[in-house]
């Protein structure tokens, strides 16, 4: 019963946030520019949470997430621009193609571990970028312009919620537990009947699917895609990784908070962009040295925990 109640409360909160944004935008308190940033927050949440599935929960180490993002971004844009497909099917197609690519990228994960896998995924991401760079149908090196602005805040918000809920449910199911087992000790997992190959590839495919969806939202948000390292290459991958690591590997709420904070702060620090790029890496290194599992370190922030925090409860109540 308590569970149902807190579920309803969460839904109510989520609706409230949406209503508040709509209301404030209608009143002109939130400018379109602000709502844009909120949309970007949602897109980044999708990226970080989906990478968390691969890196945080399954213990693989991908730094090629931007590759999946790129596939979703370009395929969906091609579908809406060249084939006049409606947006939602285009998002799904982008996600599916990215997911299939994730299957292919997951395959090396069967043989590689840790840092070798990291480099291989980075390589995969760059290969995807170079292929896009050489594909004239999507603008090649000139970039892909004239993409319709289909991404609304509502849609980005809804997709982010779906992503978080689906990945949370996945992690809390037997499938997710199998992924955790692979992360913790592959040999023990195998000896308990867990097909580690299958779950690594599954995590890659699922994570890639959502990254593809995020890409689709992004290309119809920015209306222009450039095949540069910072937009779809390894610089982008590392951006996502920074958010993930600061939020904490294996913490979904950590990912959400980090994605929001690290999307919003740079907007306020526009004039200090250069210093930001110095501050971020230092922050990243400091976290690794002093709190290597990230700020949230595999724990989740819960409503219950929050209310107790507000009540001034002495113990910090997190729920695993």
């Amino acid at each position: 019963m308590a569970n149902k109640l807190s579920g309803l409360l969460k839904v109510a909160l989520l609706v409230l946030v949406y209503a508040a944004v709509q209301f404030l935008e209608g009143r002109g308190i939130l400018l379109p520019y602000h709502v844009q940033i909120l949309s970007l927050c949602c897109i980044n949440i999708i990226l970080v949470v989906s990478l968390n599935l691969i890196n945080g929960f399954t213990g693989q180490f991908s730094i090629g997430h931007a590759g999946f993002f790129a596939i979703g971004a370009y395929l969906s844009a091609y579908l809406t621009v060249k084939l006049q497909l409606p947006f939602i099917p285009a998002i799904i197609c982008g996600g599916i193609l990215a997911g299939l690519t994730g299957l292919a990228v997951g395959l090396p994960a069967l043989r590689l571990r840790g840092d070798y896998l990291a480099i291989a995924t980075l390589g995969f991401g760059e290969i995807i970028r170079v292929i896009i760079l050489n594909t004239d149908a999507v603008g090649g090196a000139r970039g892909f312009s004239g993409i319709p602005k289909y991404t609304t805040f509502g849609l980005a918000y809804l997709t982010a919620i779906i992503t978080v809920v689906v990945i949370r449910n996945f992690v809390a199911s037997d499938y997710g537990r199998a992924c955790l087992a692979v992360r913790e000790d592959e040999i023990a997992a195998e000896s308990l009947g867990v097909n580690s190959t299958y779950f690594k590839v599954l995590a890659f495919a699922l994570g890639a699917f959502f990254a593809g969806a995020a890409g689709a939202l992004f290309s119809h948000y920015l209306q222009y895609m450039a095949p540069t390292p910072s937009q779809i290459g390894f610089v982008k991958s590392i951006d996502i990784l920074i958010m993930l690591v600061l939020g904490g590997l294996g913490s979904i709420t950590g990912s959400v908070v980090a994605a929001i904070v690290l999307t919003v702060i740079p907007e306020f620090l526009r004039g200090f962009a250069e210093y930001r790029m110095i501050l971020y890496p230092i922050l990243l290194m400091a976290v690794m040295i002093y709190r290597p599992s990230g700020l949230m370190a595999g724990r989740e922030l819960t409503l219950k925990g929050l209310t107790e925090l507000f009540k001034g409860a002495k113990t910090r109540a997190y729920h695993s």
């Binding site: 996945f170 199911s173 037997d174 997710g176 537990r177 087992a181 997992a189 308990l192 009947g193």
Partner: peptide
């Protein structure tokens, strides 16, 4: 985790 092989529900159910 070790009950894995006896689990019957599908991925979508999860």
């Amino acid at each position: 985790i070790a009950y894995h092989k006896n689990r019957r529900y599908s991925l979508l159910c999860g």
